[in-house]
Design a protein around this nucleic acid. Structure first.
Lengths: 209, 209
DNA sequence: GTCTATAATCCGATAGAC
DNA sequence: GTCTATCGGATTATAGAC
């Protein structure tokens, strides 16, 4: 019976990834699983309940991707890889990326369920950890790790969101470049002088006003 | 007849702002207007059509708010006011803010309608203008205005979005402070040395690792 | 107990009378 | 321009089959 639930959830993730939020229905899900729609309500309280578990799967996938960044040899390397992993996850799984950050809007929730609130906080914590060890290694200026982590998270999330939603009229390769450039511009103010110089040394030609 | 359409649109905005996307239905709208549902289809092709015009109203309201920032006396002042106006709009009209940036997800559109794409670009353009005049005034480093504008827009949008969606467990006053702090941290890397020093001079006490 | 089907209710959208 | 009537599809409570 717990097996049935898992099988349904697998199909639910596939359906959401294929058809998106507005294309997701319990009837379609039932057809995919091979049962009638009401049967699903034996395993899940509601459509919302199913989607909330899909959000959980999305989070799991994100953390799987982020965890690869921890294989880097140095704090700076892990930091850089984390940024790349976040972008890579978003471009590889745009629907999961959207679901993770905007399920409250999608399903009209007034407040975030505790389970998912904790998961969201752990994305923030992951960044705080990367920041903290870069501060300790003298790569980032000594500042509040939570504040720095929030700047970086907000920027990366915002930029990727604008792109995924089609609000930045750029092809993917140009967007990857814009992401890198934008990240570098933020780092110019966060890194220690010696690292900031290295960062600024590679920034591209500009029109001098 | 154009008057009827306007009256329906007014009720549509109220209904969306009150009940959100998932609480918005043509039948509810018809009840609010005082007609039956099919009558609405004389004035709007579909529910999607109605909501697209609501997005237009949201954009109008955003630009009305942003335009107040242009009353500042100096480029720096207009720049600062623009940031505050964007935050103020989002906190005063969170549903409009969400609608403006994520209507594609809401209504399952594959691409952004041209009319709204142009409006989104003009938000970007507004920031580019603020950045350009600050560069010319020697407040921001001479860099690509579009690139700088994108960093600022992405960061502000991302941070506000995370908050509105309940992913940052902070009360509003604490969030306003976090927004200001985060903005200042970004500016540290974008402003010219003299202005950056002024900026860094006010940053709060930190634990030195 | 575990699963399924029927049916009530709501939604978006259309057809056709007035 | 608006109504009545109606279709197809959605969620979900209830009652019945294994």
């Amino acid at each position: 019976m717990v097996d049935s639930k898992h099988r349904i959830l697998t199909h639910a993730c596939d359906l959401y990834l294929a058809d998106g939020f507005d294309g997701f229905s319990m009837r379609k899900l039932a057809r995919a699983v091979g049962v009638t729609a009401p049967a699903l309500y034996r395993h899940f309280e509601s459509k919302e309940d199913v989607l909330l578990e899909v959000v959980g799967e999305a989070h799991d996938e994100l953390f799987r991707t982020l965890s690869h960044a921890l294989g880097g040899p140095t704090p700076e390397d892990r930091f850089r890889r984390a940024g790349e992993a976040y972008l890579g996850f978003a471009l590889a799984n745009p629907r999961y990326f959207q679901m993770i950050h905007s399920f409250t809007e999608f399903m009209g929730l007034d407040e975030v369920p505790e389970e998912l609130s904790r998961r969201a906080c752990s994305v923030g914590q992951f960044w705080h950890d990367r920041v903290r060890e870069c501060i300790e290694a003298g790569i980032l200026k000594p500042d509040d790790p939570e504040g720095i982590g929030l700047v970086l998270w907000a920027h990366a999330y915002g930029l990727i969101s604008l792109y995924i939603r089609g609000l930045l009229p750029l092809p993917e390769e140009a967007f990857r470049q814009a992401y890198t450039d934008s990240f570098r511009r933020i780092m110019a103010g966060l890194a220690t002088p010696e690292h900031a110089e290295a960062v600024n040394g590679v920034h591209r030609e500009v029109k001098p006003g």
